[in-house]
Design a protein around this nucleic acid. Sequence first.
DNA 1: GTCAAGTGAGAAAAGGTTTTCTCAGCTATC
DNA 2: GATAGCTGAGAAAACCTTTTCTCACTTGAC
Lengths: 344, 344
Amino acid sequence: MEELLDTTGGKRGRITIHDVAAAAGISISTASKALNDTGRMGLETRERVKRIAAEIGYRPNALARGLLSKRSFTIGLLTNDTYGRFTLPVMAGISDALVDHGVSVFLCAIEEDPALAQIHVEAMLDKQVDGIIATGKRLDRRLPVDLSNLNVPVVYAFTEGAPGSVTFRSDDAQGARLAVEWLAKLGRKRMVHVTGPENFFSVRERADAYRRVAGEERPVLFGVWSESWGHEAVARLWSGGGERPNGIFCGNDQIARGVIDALRERGIRVPQDVSVVGFDNWEIVAAQTRPPLTTVDMELKELGRQAGLTVLALAEGRSVEPGIRKLPCRLVVRQSCGGDTLGI
Amino acid sequence: MEELLDTTGGKRGRITIHDVAAAAGISISTASKALNDTGRMGLETRERVKRIAAEIGYRPNALARGLLSKRSFTIGLLTNDTYGRFTLPVMAGISDALVDHGVSVFLCAIEEDPALAQIHVEAMLDKQVDGIIATGKRLDRRLPVDLSNLNVPVVYAFTEGAPGSVTFRSDDAQGARLAVEWLAKLGRKRMVHVTGPENFFSVRERADAYRRVAGEERPVLFGVWSESWGHEAVARLWSGGGERPNGIFCGNDQIARGVIDALRERGIRVPQDVSVVGFDNWEIVAAQTRPPLTTVDMELKELGRQAGLTVLALAEGRSVEPGIRKLPCRLVVRQSCGGDTLGI
DNA sequence: GTCAAGTGAGAAAAGGTTTTCTCAGCTATC
DNA sequence: GATAGCTGAGAAAACCTTTTCTCACTTGAC
């Protein structure tokens, strides 16, 4: 009790429970039980052991603990989203949800390389991860690796899951409805939808929802995910002799940015003449657009949080209903539609 | 040898070295030595054990191995770069360098929260990481946590390190020289530098290098890291009665984007009338700018790779010279300066 | 035929922790 | 005063590997 404290952490290696036991003059079994609030023991002993452990800076070795408990308090996050545009919010949500439970996250970026993916999966399994979350950049694409027969739980987030698995995704239809209803509420009835390639599942889903709310006859322009397509779409809409829209719902923020820039170049005012709404709420694009973009946020952080909690539940043996869970999107009102002073 | 293979991985838990030994009719010691190419043993036995291990799908438990060897083949990456703009390339480089060595990476995003940082650091230490890499978004700011007295090696990458540590950073002065020399080579002698806040170390370093090459009298406009500052800077330059520049070196790609947009709005052609060069090579901005941006790449992936190899070396007990290592930047030529058809 | 050297393989310990089992001593009950 | 039940605490096993030590056996040399 009056020993010199070795603040360097001991000459060799870390402080173990043996050191705690020795310092308290008890056995390691008793020390363990005291620290974990298990077993039978005098309250006074328990407190004393805890105090001594804290004093000498004891921290249990997670490897040893994991070896016995078969829980490593570690999960793996597998992603093929190199840019991290979708992965980072998901990661943030997972981490946020799990840090309280002492769980750390291995991040593995696998590009589209099946061999690399396999290596990472094996490394994670060797390290006894409690579970794996697979995430990506497209709802309708699989990661280039088969995770269906692993003996750890797998949860899919923002990527296509295996049959019978748990999958979290954004509710793109609902997100599109939010956008369209907002435009309608602002009186923008002459709507058009400028979006990405039709072979994307989420593009079709958003377009369908848009047509259901705005009217089946309202036009949809499919293209690519770039600013320049936004420019081109505006050129097409304004050069033809057809109806000029006063509300443009874009498939992502980059297209919206292109659309707004193109409108400005034509002297068309946003939002006075035309309202524009984007999709993704990619801060760096949405906030820098002039005017700042009203856009749909997929709440990817919340999606990550739920995926994290779910994989944890599975790891703890709790059972989880399989299936696809659609999480609601949220409309972020900035200035590209007007109405931003209304409150929502 | 003719046993039924249990492809499910056994009814309970994973396949261990005991299973290999049993299947081969030998002891676990012999199995271990066979698989690790250690000890003395008949070649035939060794091969047979390896074959059987592969057949039944044995993979060693990294936890058990780590407990003994005191190496977890795991490192931690600590970052306060929420957007991940700088962290992701660094992470990719680290992962790329270490995956061959069987090392996995814990990613911990700590924002600016010292308590959160502390929790993550302790979780990593509990999990016996072999080392920690600290990274951030500013060269002249510390992470909100003290890593200097840990008993694992720490390497700093793109953030300010503790005294006596190993730190990797980009050579911003050299990067600025690349940009300025390129403008000069294209005959753009009337240069101006539009950059971020002067209290950033890298801003000062780039500005100093710019002045040394372009001439001490050449103007520098300090501002903020946004597109709108680019617009404002152009307005300032073209509204006054002063000299009109024909080469603009911007402190980052967002400012460059704003500058180019502002120039176009004034009917000034890029690159015919004015050449613009950015900094960061942030694909999403640089490639979508019209025309696409010639810019300086800080080679963060390479920086990550070297940081990874260094922390690994330290973990293996090899000694590494402390100090700051500046890694060269690279000029990425697109079309915003002209000269892109020259070759470089 | 004896001895030394070499070969193949197993037993056991170690790594740090948790958990189950056992045991000695005490209190309460009749 | 004996016995049942309780209390506090320790011994030992278990988790999965690796490594060191030991041992039995073979071979070659004298």
